[in-house]
Design a protein around this nucleic acid. Structure first.
Length: 886
RNA sequence: GGGCGCUUAGCUCAGUUGGCUAGAGCACUGCCCUUACAAGGCAGGGGUCGGCGGUUCGAGUCCGUCAGCGCCCACCA
């Protein structure tokens, strides 16, 4: 009754308790004591095979050994056609570890291991993405500091032990130092996990997106984009996060459903007649520049071209017509503000309307009264000055109510509001100067070229390509790459200041490529002195940094050393695969395609392998906001790396997969089974047996089946379907242990040519199975290999079914004999007797070909069934076993 | 509003050009300490393939339609 009860409990433990402590209740501890000591094999055990093989400690042992031996070290003497290059996703190191951090990476690793065994030299680097806002935010929270660019550098600064509230203000340079300290720690945590789960990356190739080399490539690529006209700066309305106080790009937006309300507000015609509009943002009436209706809307046709006056502010406004005005929405006529939403931007641009901005970069309403307001309007505005939009909205609603300009009660609604994906408050739209890289949003020819690149790319699974197409089709603005932040790759430009101190943005000063990377805030453009910084007639550095994707879109160039190692670059580019998650097709995959298209005129890789989502055990998507993120290390420690890898590889390409402890347990069981089966197969001789000794029909039959398995697994891997490759090996292997091994066991314990045939067949098959499993279970297979062979299994050739061909025979001998054995087992099971129970007689009826197959394995069958005799008769296939009376 | 994916046993999932009686593992039930493995083995029960309609000699598979779930995109008035 106590069997596995501890295990059962662990399985039912709620997620919230799944911490190292919660899991540490030893699995199956009750069983530990009751287990009898294993009997030693009766034959010579000259090989170093443990009596009780175990998975414990294999990860640490082999990770150290692989590192020492350079097992996965990239051999750059190989040529492009001999190399398989992987554009590994650099994880955001400031992000938390979760099961997704192992899922996709293990799947890619399994494929990498297959390619390495099948003869390719695998270029498999790891990178760390430590740029950008996530790191900044993490540093702020971790150390309790805020960056203030106006503070001087303090060389003796040490971060506070605990985070203070309010935060400590530090200089930009001190802040960046802290970023480096923290990312180094974060990288270590990720590396420990990757090593624990056995990723076969070459750690000597590791890069970080903030390191010297990456900054150099990032700036070089940008300057080349600039020189070719693919990058440009413009003063324009941008989506703006008021907390981070930076512009954000279209790709970083997400909609969130927020509660809001429609306010029905009266504007007045010259004759005093009201014109009602519906708005969710009444606080922006002061920035209204026009009302807009659809040109075909009969209700408002007479109003087009007329003037109306805004309530409380008394501003006279034109009524204009535009197709985007939706007669079905609200009252059918809307106010255009600068800017309440992206439609406003479109109207403003296309209808050439004035700009009346009231929201500042910090999200508050300007303190000063705008120039277009006067008299009562100015008084009204003074009530809003300095407020945040949500505060201003409440104030405005009160004032409208009092003024009788509000028609009825506000109608509460829920509507989608645009947020920066990492932000906490709705985005505002402000006008500012930013850098962009063209992406086809405003250029049909480029858009079509990029769509064609998407068609060219081999997508796994295929339907993921649709997401790329939709994204490119739906682009409505160029790629905004500048960010008003501190930690990242600086935009490598300066601007001349004219005699009045105004920057000349149209003709930026660029550094020489040879001087990269540079920081324009501390380096000086050619022909200038530091003393001229900020002075009229002098220069000023661009204060911004680049978006994290502006650098990570260059991972092939960074990892392949595009700029400083043309020999390596020629060997690895274009790369073979880009493995990544589906959520970053619109960002990482697309931006990498754009950069490669511009710089190299081609795709950066042949194939994109897109993994699925990780769902929690209740099949909900894991996210930090729900609080169901599961960290992987406890699973690795408790179930073992092989178990976690097995689970990850059971998730099919692109398929969403739930965390499933049951599947991890099966993986662990498989690994243990392999150890034990290997112990049996290798236990008969202390030297290899020549495969030429294989002459028994059933041995040859087994090898024929194995050959088919190899073929199937290979085909699956070639189609990037690691799951099918695993399942092929797995189902074949269980059949092998359950039937073939049982059938030949007695013969194997004997002597002479017949025993030698079994020994040779067992060894040959084991060698094949180990290699079929090596991509999935690298530790177990390496362990067994080390009992037996020299060198790492992970550098051994992938099994080739044609090499088995000389030893194969009729596959049906084994399958038919197994059917008979199963029938005998059923008889024993029905009789509730041991499988060792003696059988007086087995009667087999079948057609002559069936009988011939079984006769070919009769001796093994009799031994395995413990049958005294086997009789045959012609007829429909059937088996009757008569148990010996006790 | 548009798009993509999913729906097969209690659970997690296979089922590749339509073809014998729909499979696996887990879970469940029974039996078995068997000289690789009791952290194991052997055997068994369990499904009208989300609903409806159509094509076909034949549909889990193809077509249409509806429903539910998940994800992505969309101009927030």
């Amino acid at each position: 009754a106590t069997l596995c009860s501890a295990n059962e409990k662990a399985r039912r433990t709620p997620l919230s308790a799944l911490h190292p402590v919660g899991l540490s209740a030893t699995l199956c501890s009750a069983n530990e004591k009751a287990r009898p000591t294993p009997l030693p094999l009766p034959v010579h055990m000259a090989r170093d095979i443990p009596e009780k093989p175990s998975l414990e400690g294999l990860e640490a042992k082999w990770d150290a050994r692989w590192e020492q031996d350079g097992t996965y070290r990239f051999d750059r003497s190989k040529t492009r056609d001999q190399i398989f290059a992987i554009d590994t996703p650099p994880p955001t190191v400031s992000g938390s570890l979760h099961m997704g951090s192992v899922f996709g990476y293990v799947q890619t690793d399994a494929h990498a291991r297959y390619r390495r065994m099948s003869g390719k030299e695998v270029f498999y680097p790891m990178g760390w993405d430590d740029n950008g806002l996530p790191t900044e935010r993490r540093v702020q929270n971790y150390y309790g500091v805020r960056c203030d660019p106006n503070i001087a550098y303090d060389p003796d600064f040490t971060p506070p032990e605990t985070a203070y509230d309010p935060p400590v203000q530090v200089s930009r340079r001190n802040f960046i130092d802290l970023c480096h300290v923290l990312t180094a720690e974060d990288e270590k945590v990720f590396e420990d996990l990757w090593r624990a789960i056995g990723l076969s990356v070459d750690w000597s190739l590791t890069y970080a997106t903030i390191d010297h080399h990456s900054r150099r490539i990032s700036q070089k690529a940008f300057l080349r984009n600039l020189a070719r006209g693919e990058a440009y700066s413009a003063e324009a309305p941008v989506l703006w996060d008021v907390d981070f106080q930076t512009a954000v790009a279209q790709a970083e937006l997400e909609d969130r459903e927020k509660a809001g309300a429609y306010y029905k507000i009266a504007f007045r015609k010259a004759d005093g007649e009201p014109v009602y509009i519906d708005t969710t943002r009444p606080e922006l009436i002061c920035s209204c520049v026009a009302l807009v209706a659809h040109p075909d809307d009969e209700r408002y046709q007479g109003l087009i071209g007329e003037k109306v006056t805004s309530p409380l502010f008394g501003v006279e406004l034109p009524v204009v017509a535009h197709d985007l005005a939706d007669p079905e929405k609200g009252t059918g006529i809307a106010m255009i503000c600068t800017f309440g939403d992206t439609t406003d931007v479109t109207w403003w641009r296309e209808l050439d309307l004035p700009t009346r901005a009231v929201i500042q970069h910090d999200g508050r309403f300007h303190e000063e009264t705008p120039e277009w307001l006067s008299g009562e309007g100015a008084d009204t505005y003074s009530e809003l000055a300095g407020l945040f939009p949500n505060q201003a909205r409440r104030k405005m609603a009160e004032m409208l109510e009092e003024a009788g300009a509000l028609d009825g009660e506000p109608r509460e609604i829920t509507h989608p509001v645009k947020f920066y994906e990492k932000g906490d408050r709705p985005l505002e739209i402000v006008t500012s100067r930013q850098w962009y890289i063209r992406n086809g949003a405003r250029d049909d020819e480029l858009r079509n070229d990029l769509l064609a690149r998407g068609e060219e790319l081999h997508w796994v699974p295929e339907h993921m390509g649709v997401r790329y197409k939709h994204w490119v089709d739906g682009l409505n603005s160029d790629w905004l790459i500048s960010r008003q932040r501190f930690f990242g790759v600086p935009i490598p430009l300066w601007y001349r200041l004219d005699s009045s101190g105004e920057p000349d943005y149209e003709n930026p000063l660029a550094p020489d490529e040879a001087d990269l990377p540079i920081d324009p805030s501390s380096h000086v453009p050619a022909g200038y002195e530091e003393s001229q910084r900020g002075k009229p007639g002098g220069f000023v550095g661009d204060p911004d940094i680049m978006d994290t994707w502006a650098t990570s879109s260059l991972t092939p160039q960074i990892a392949g050393h595009w700029d400083d190692d043309p020999d390596l670059w020629a060997r690895v580019f274009p790369m073979d695969i880009r493995p990544q998650g589906p959520d970053i097709i619109r960002t990482w995959l697309f931006s990498t395609t754009v950069r490669s298209h511009f710089e190299h005129g081609r795709l950066p890789w042949d194939t994109a392998t897109i993994n699925g989502w990780i769902l929690d055990p209740d099949r909900k998507k894991m996210s930090k906001s729900i609080g169901n993120v599961v960290t992987p290390m406890p699973f690795v420690e408790e179930y073992g790396a092989e178990a976690v890898r097995y689970w990850a590889c059971k998730g099919r390409p692109g398929a969403d997969t739930a965390i499933d402890f049951g599947i991890m347990k099966i993986g662990r069981r498989l690994a243990i089974k392999i150890l034990n089966a290997a112990r049996f197969a290798l236990g008969f001789t202390d030297s290899d047996v020549d495969p030429a000794a294989i002459n028994e029909d059933i041995d040859k039959s087994m090898l024929a089946g194995l050959s088919a398995t190899v073929e199937e697994a290979t085909k699956a891997f070639e189609e990037y379907d690691y799951t099918r490759a695993l399942e092929a090996a797995e189902s074949s292997f269980w059949g092998w242990t359950d039937d073939y091994v049982e059938l030949v066991k007695a013969r194997a314990y004997g002597e002479g040519a017949q025993a030698a045939s079994a020994h040779a067949a067992l060894q040959l098959a084991l060698g094949v199975y180990l290699r079929l499993f090596a991509p999935f279970l690298p530790y177990t297979t390496e362990e067994v290999w080390s009992w037996w062979k020299e060198g790492s299994i992970h550098r051994m050739p992938w099994p080739d079914e044609t090499q088995l061909a000389t030893h194969t025979g009729e596959p049906a001998v084994l399958s038919k004999t197994s059917e008979v054995l199963a029938a005998v087992r059923r008889t024993k099971s029905d009789a509730s007797v041991s499988m060792r129970a003696e059988v007086e007689r087995v009667s087999v009826t079948g057609d002559s070909s069936d009988i011939d197959l079984i006769r070919a394995a009769e001796a093994d069958l009799k031994a395995a069934a413990r049958a005294a005799s086997i009789e045959y008769a012609e007829g429909e296939f059937g088996v009757v076993a008569v148990l010996t009376a006790q």
